[in-house]
Nucleic acid binder design. Sequence first.
DNA 1: CCGTATCCAACAGGATACTG
DNA 2: CAGTATCCTGTTGGATACGG
Lengths: 142, 142
Amino acid sequence: MNITIAENQMIELQKKIAVFFEGGETNHGFCPIKDILDRFGDKWSLLAILNLGYLGRTRFNELRKHIAGISQRMLTVTLRSLERDGLISRQVFAEVPPRVEYELTSLGAGLLLQIWNLAQWAAQSMDEILEARKRYDMAHAE
Amino acid sequence: MNITIAENQMIELQKKIAVFFEGGETNHGFCPIKDILDRFGDKWSLLAILNLGYLGRTRFNELRKHIAGISQRMLTVTLRSLERDGLISRQVFAEVPPRVEYELTSLGAGLLLQIWNLAQWAAQSMDEILEARKRYDMAHAE
DNA sequence: CCGTATCCAACAGGATACTG
DNA sequence: CAGTATCCTGTTGGATACGG
């Protein structure tokens, strides 16, 4: 039953990819995939965006509590780069003790939507992947 | 005009994420995002899948030609891990010289669809991101 | 509270040489 | 042709200490 990414749907997709590749700089390596990876392929960016989507406007340490395992340094670094790319906004309040709040921009919300779809796919496919992996390891263990 | 991920759409998404987080193991860090990153956050996996989607069933060196800059070693490593996860199939022909062909499985095709959506978003948003970056760098250069 | 600065270990991944 | 095997470097990111 999982054999149904309908054939024609797949062919449609192939055509689109072809346009994508051939319309661009063809084979000199232009590809937004590389850019995606450079920006969001790191360990924490997607998690930060997902959590900001979940929490809405959030303070630094509140966010940190929700991203299990992240160090202070990496949360700072990650938030800065997301801010630089216009995906989140950062607002500092001149108080003592200081308060800083982060929030997704509309651009960031658009990315969140994509991440969400990807996460959904991953959640749905995880069992199948784990099974495949088990099969592979069985077959390749001597 | 880009201020339109409609509010209610965003709120809907927040609810879904909430269910996602709170339905799972809550705050102990369960999250398919981490798994996604572990598997596809590397430098080459997404490119391999995208190119296999583009080319269809393909031989090792043919694939290599299309993925600009990949080393023989990394193509092997990448393809092995994708095969292990059941995302691509590998068929060896007992010929001299040897021939090996790779192809997306239906599971892999499902992932391709997600990657495609993400790539589309990236392509559409790239300008806006680059602008934001320029603004940020202007503001933070003393 | 919200960072920055410094140091350092682990690992991804490139270059190269060799095989069935 | 389609890989292994080995070596070696650059980068990622954790730990720790300090600052506004």
